[in-house]
């Protein structure tokens, strides 16, 4: 145990670990897209005038919030096959993360939509816009601008949460490191490289979110050349 960090091991395994990171990033983007849409549908359904629909949505959100994400992953991958639903590991991971993040992000959408003053709804209605048109053209564009920084932070969290998908054997970066470490026992080197990889993505992403936060807070102004 003379040197903890073995440069040769790091170089030798950099390729496979990078492939794992790419899988992590791919999974993150798939879930971002699915949950952006899913959360909007959940948020709108949760504000619907149809009472039973609101109850179903409320129940779904409470179940997701009241159970661990790890358990949700395991449930979808290991329990559903017992009732005949067999999913590939990537599909199972993407579904579990989407269900989880859609629930949380729907609350972000809801908060953003409710932050728009009632006067905006009144003005849109008085101009003859239907509820749907007003939502699409007037309310959502303003709400989305408000919630962009919050969404950014959620997605950085998602990027890190994908590590849990190692339990459903998606070949993302943590699972890849586990497999290699099981053969050469170079834990320190391998997991340090993995940590640096996560940091190399999430640190710039956090800076970008900070920048977006300043931009969106600045208000609506004409861009003077």
């Amino acid at each position: 145990m003379i040197e903890l960090f073995n440069v040769d091991v790091a170089v030798e395994n950099f390729g496979p670990l990078l492939a794992g990171l790419m899988m992590t990033i791919a999974l993150t983007f798939v879930v971002i897209i699915l949950s952006l849409v899913g959360a909007l549908l959940v948020a709108l359904a949760g504000m619907s005038r149809i009472t039973p629909l609101r109850w179903v949505i409320k129940g779904y959100i409470e179940v997701i919030r009241g159970t661990p994400l790890l358990l949700q992953l395991i449930y979808i991958y290991y329990v559903l096959p017992e009732i005949g639903i067999r999913l590939a590991s990537f599909t199972a991971g993407a579904i579990a993360l989407t269900l989880n993040y859609s629930a949380y992000i729907s609350e972000v959408y809801r908060g953003g939509i409710q932050a728009i003053p009632a006067g905006q709804h009144d003005a849109a209605a008085a101009l003859g816009m239907t509820r749907g048109l007003a939502m699409r053209r007037i309310i959502l564009p303003q709400a989305i601008r408000i919630i962009i920084p919050t969404l950014g932070n959620y997605f950085i969290g998602l990027f890190k949460d994908t590590a849990l998908c190692s339990v459903v054997s998606i070949q993302e970066v943590v699972f890849t490191a586990q497999i290699i470490a099981a053969q050469n026992f170079q834990y320190f080197t391998l997991y340090t490289v993995v940590a640096l990889m996560y940091f190399a993505v999430s640190f710039p992403a956090a800076r970008l979110v900070g920048h977006l936060e300043r931009v969106t807070r600045a208000g609506y102004r004409r861009r003077h050349p």
Partner: peptide, 13 residues
Amino acid sequence: VGMVFQHFNLFPH
């Protein structure tokens, strides 16, 4: 019927 509000309610975006 056009309506003008106390607080204008222009669309800020």
